[in-house]
Design a binder for these strands. Sequence first.
DNA 1: ATGTCACCTGGTAGGTGA
Length: 255
Amino acid sequence: MQLATWNVNSLAVRLPQVLDWLAAHPVDALVLQETKLTDDKFPAEQIQAAGYQVAWFGQKTYNGVALLSKQPAQDVVRNIPGLDDDMARVISGTVAGVRVIGGYFPNGQAPDSEKFQYKMRWLQALRNWVRTELAAFPQLVLMGDFNIAPEDRDVYDPVAWAGQIHCTPEERAHFRELVALGLVDAFRLFEQPPKSWSWWDYRNLAFRKNQGLRIDHILVSAALKPQVASCSIDKLPRKNERPSDHAPVLVELRG
DNA sequence: ATGTCACCTGGTAGGTGA
């Protein structure tokens, strides 16, 4: 089966691109971030017409996530249970026996900001919850826009970005702690092209200059690791007219 | 060196977030 994650930066704008991409990449499940739609405005009918089931969880203006799947997702959960959070950031469901968690992690703005403190609290709550989820669902995939570049090789200019948001030691420690729960970064299971990024700022001609970060990730559980056949970033949609600033990331599982 | 995009409010621009 194939799974994918994509931060679309407004599904209202990017729905045609999502449907085009699914036609070319008919993955079994796709999680979306930054849909930026209230639930009453979610384009469920157009997605269903394209052959996908969908569960969604949004809010006005910001955030918003969705889980698209060929087979309907079972036991859908929205956000992190037990965390008091007014932002729509997580949607989970079981697809073909795999527990899929799609997340839009907080950006954090700047290391000295209140938003960074929220990011730290959110990451701690996520870790505690994923620990229990892994115990209940050994076959688990955690994917989405983590807003964390795990290592210097995930940053186009690690010197300039040292200590900046997405690259702080605190964020990187949280990433490692998530992995330490019993997950693996599927992208790094394979030889990858150098300078592989999943996000390029809209500003500064960053995509043309390939100045990006790898902040969108697919973590798979130890039980699934032997089944991982490939993992890649699809840069093509970033070349569209009116692209999202993020590219989709895909993983293929055998069996 | 610089270079954006999407959304909101409230109004035909400015502010916010990323």
